[in-house]
Design a protein around this nucleic acid. Structure first.
Lengths: 338, 338
DNA sequence: CTGAAAGCGCTTACAG
DNA sequence: CTGAAAGCGCTTACAG
C-alpha cells in the first residue's frame, strides 16, 4: 500500500518516469491523454500512478497550462433564514459539478461594493472563471467582470445580452401562479415585495404584472408594495390590505411571507377564509406553519449545477446559450383554497 | 489608468524589472519583503506595481515556494434551517480572516464517508491547510488528516490531544445554563437531544450532566432523550415529559426546540407557566416565537475567524494552543420565567 | 510512438 | 544592496 520507499518527498512525474524507464513527457501524456502514446505504455503508467497514488502538482500544471481548475463562486453577504439556505444550497450544486469535473471552488463574499477581492483573484490567476450568485439592476460586479474578460455566469436575468445568465424562470413562474389564482376566481391579488434593485425581485414583480395584463385586468397600484424593508412596514401593509378588502396577498419571498402570516395570525385573520396567501419562493420556513402555503418551488441545487456546467463549458471554449431558464413548480396548498 | 501600452499580455515580474532597469530578483524582493533591498529601490518598485496593477502569478509563486495561499474549509452536507446558517456563518468568519491574510478558501462538502476529495486536494497541493467544521466521536476525517500530516484545525472538542481544536465551550455553557436554571428554583430539567455521534451534541449533554453532578442532584434517566431523530419522536418525548410532571425541557438545539415549542402549543401547554423551555443554541429560528426562549448564544462568525487564525498560525509555523475555547452568553428570557 | 529541451513566472542561495 | 543562474514540477512543440 503505502510504499514511500526510503524518502517521503512527494513523488513527481520524473520519479514515475525513472521508475518505469520512460521519459517525463511520456508520463505527462499518459496522464493528460493528450498527444500520441502507445496503449501499452499508457496503461503501464496509469497502473503505476494508480497504485502509488501519484497526483500531479497543481501549481506546476497551472503554470504550464495557464489554467487553475478553480472557479470562484461569488456570494453576497446575507444573514436571513431565507437567504442563507438559498446561497448555501446553490453552492452545493456548483460544487457538485465542479468536483465531478476536477474543479475546486473558491468562495468569495462581497459587500456589494468592493471589487478588490475579485480583482485579486483574477489578476493573481487563481481562478478560470466565476459565478455571480446574486445580481442587481445596475450591477457593479457584472460590469467589472465584463471588463476583465474573464468567463463568468450570472445567476439572474439581465437586459444585457452579452452576459451569460442562468436562472429560474421567475417571470414566467410568477405570471403563471397569479394566472392560476385568477382562474380560481380570486378577483384581486396584492403584491408585497422589497429590494427591487435585485434582479430576482424585479422578475417576480414583472411576472405578477404580466399576469394582470394577460388577464386584461386593471392593476390597482394600491395593491402593490415594492419597498417593505422592515417588519413594521410589512405589518402596516397587511393592515391596509385587510381594510381594503383584498382577497389574496402574493409575497415576493418567504421572508415577507413569514411576516405576513404572523401578522395575520395576530390580527386574528384566518387563512384562507378571510385572506389568501401565496409566496413566490418555497423555502423550509413555510414548513413551520399550521396552514400550508401555496408557493412556487425552485430547485436551487439544480440552479447551482447548471450555472457551473455552463461556466465550465465556457471555460472549455464551447458555445453556451446566453440564457438558461430553469423550470419551476407551482404548489397549490391550503392557503389559497376556496 | 489602464495603460496596456500596446500588448495586453499580462505583466510579469520581468516586465516591471525591465521597465525599471532592475533585475527580476530585485522586484521579487520588493514584493515579498524578504531579502535585503534598498529602501529607495523598494519604494520605486512598489509604486510602479501599485500604479500598473501588477499582481504576481499565484501558480508561479506556489510552485517556487511550495505554498498555495489557499485553505480548505470542509463542510458537512446539511439542509436544515439550523445547520445551514451555522456553517454558512462559520464560513464567513473563516473567509474574513483568510482574505485579510491574502488567503483564499476552497470549499469542499463531505458526505461523512468519502475521503477522496480531501485526498485530491492534499496530494495535488492545492491547499496549505484545512478546517474541519463538524466533528464526530470517531472521526474518519480527523484520522485521515492526522495521517496526511497536513496542518488542520477541528471545530469541536476531542479527547485526542494531538488535534488542534477550536470550539465554543459547549460543556461549560450548558453546565452553567442548567446550574442557573436550578438556581432559579427549577427542580428537574429534562434533556432532549439527538445524533450523539456529533461531538457538539456530546459536549452539550456532558454539560447538562455535570450540572446535575455539581448540584449534587440525582439525574433521573427518564428525563433524558438522546436519540430523537424524527419529529414524531420529539413529540412523543414531549408528551411523556408533560405527563411526568417535569418542569423544564432543555433542548440540544433549535431544531429540537422548534419541535418542542410547536408541540407544546398544539397540546395547549403554556410556556413558561406549565412548562419551561430552554435551548442550547440560539439561532434565528427562535426569533419567530411569540414567547422568547432562554438559550445559549454563541458567536459563530467569531468561531470561524478564530479557527482560521489558528490554522494560519500553524501554517506559518507558530505554536498554537491545542484547544481554543470561545466564550458564550446565557440569554435568560420569558420561557424560563417564574 | 517517444524523448530532449525550452518554457510557464516566480524564488532564492550564491557571488559580488 | 543587487544580479545571474538554477530550480520548483509540469507541458508541449520539435525532432526523430
Amino acid at each position: 500500500m503505502n510504499n514511500n520507499s526510503g524518502n517521503d518527498k512527494t513523488m513527481t512525474i520524473h520519479d514515475v518516469a525513472r521508475e518505469l524507464g520512460v521519459s517525463a513527457s511520456t508520463v505527462s501524456r499518459a496522464i493528460s491523454g493528450k498527444g500520441r502514446i502507445g496503449a501499452a505504455t499508457r496503461d503501464r503508467i496509469l497502473a503505476y500512478i494508480e497504485e502509488h497514488g501519484f497526483y500531479p502538482n497543481a501549481a506546476a500544471q497551472s503554470l504550464a497550462q495557464s489554467r487553475t481548475n478553480n472557479i470562484a463562486i461569488i456570494l453576497p453577504e446575507v444573514n436571513t433564514l431565507v437567504d442563507m439556505p438559498f446561497f448555501h444550497t446553490c453552492m452545493y450544486g456548483v460544487e457538485e459539478v465542479a468536483q465531478a469535473n476536477d474543479y475546486d471552488i473558491i468562495v468569495v463574499t462581497t459587500n456589494g461594493n468592493d471589487t478588490k477581492p475579485l480583482e485579486r483573484l483574477i489578476k493573481n490567476r487563481k481562478v478560470d472563471g466565476m459565478i455571480l450568485t446574486r445580481t442587481y439592476e445596475n450591477d457593479k460586479y457584472v460590469k467589472f467582470l465584463k471588463q476583465k474578460q474573464i468567463p463568468f455566469v450570472a445567476v439572474g436575468k439581465f437586459p444585457d445580452d452579452d452576459v451569460v445568465q442562468v436562472d429560474h424562470d421567475n417571470v414566467g413562474a410568477c405570471k403563471e401562479l397569479v394566472t392560476v389564482l385568477f382562474a380560481k376566481g380570486i378577483q384581486n391579488i396584492a403584491y408585497l415585495g422589497s429590494n427591487m434593485d435585485q434582479m430576482v425581485n424585479r422578475c417576480r414583480y414583472q411576472g405578477y404584472e404580466e399576469a394582470y395584463r394577460k388577464g386584461k385586468r386593471k392593476l390597482n397600484q394600491d395593491l402593490v408594495y415594492k419597498d417593505l424593508s422592515s417588519r413594521a412596514m410589512v405589518e402596516k401593509a397587511v393592515e391596509e390590505l385587510k381594510n381594503s378588502g383584498v382577497e389574496c396577498i402574493l409575497c415576493q419571498d418567504d421572508y415577507i411571507c413569514d411576516e405576513v402570516v404572523r401578522k395575520l395570525a395576530r390580527m386574528g385573520v384566518r387563512i384562507p377564509d378571510q385572506m389568501k396567501v401565496a409566496s413566490c419562493h418555497y423555502s423550509r420556513i413555510l414548513e413551520n406553519y399550521p396552514v400550508t402555503i401555496t408557493s412556487l418551488k425552485f430547485n436551487i441545487t439544480e440552479l447551482g449545477r447548471r450555472s457551473c456546467q455552463v461556466l465550465l463549458d465556457m471555460i472549455h471554449g464551447k458555445t453556451v446559450p446566453d440564457k438558461t431558464l430553469l423550470d419551476y413548480e407551482i404548489i397549490l396548498k391550503e392557503s389559497t383554497k376556496g
